[in-house]
Amino acid sequence: MASIKISDIRHIAKLANLSLSKSQESRFFTQINSVIEHINVLCEVDTSDVEPTSQTTGLENIYREDNVDAISMLKPNQVTSGTDKIYNDFFVVDMILSEKI
């Protein structure tokens, strides 16, 4: 399996919405490569007839009643209590389009 390039580090940071400083870029480049080198050992395992494990409970399709009640629901002021950037009970977000029409 391939090692990672410095251009990959920049690309991944963009995908993950992280801004990295130059020194973080070069530090992560070295550190992530050493971890990838370590996990490449998995190549040697024969998994040709093996199903993947995504969870260990064996439970499937667990449902609950879709109840709406005063006890389990948060009030609007609780939902918005984590930020000051509120307008009429809505969260204010940055503009994502580059031009106003």
Partner: peptide, 30 residues
Amino acid sequence: AKRRIMLGTYVLSSGYYDAYYLKAMKVRTL
């Protein structure tokens, strides 16, 4: 946190998912 987000994003990204994530889930079965 940044390092782990980066590593996770990498192993889930197109072209590497099968080689890393799917492979690891299979070894987890073993």
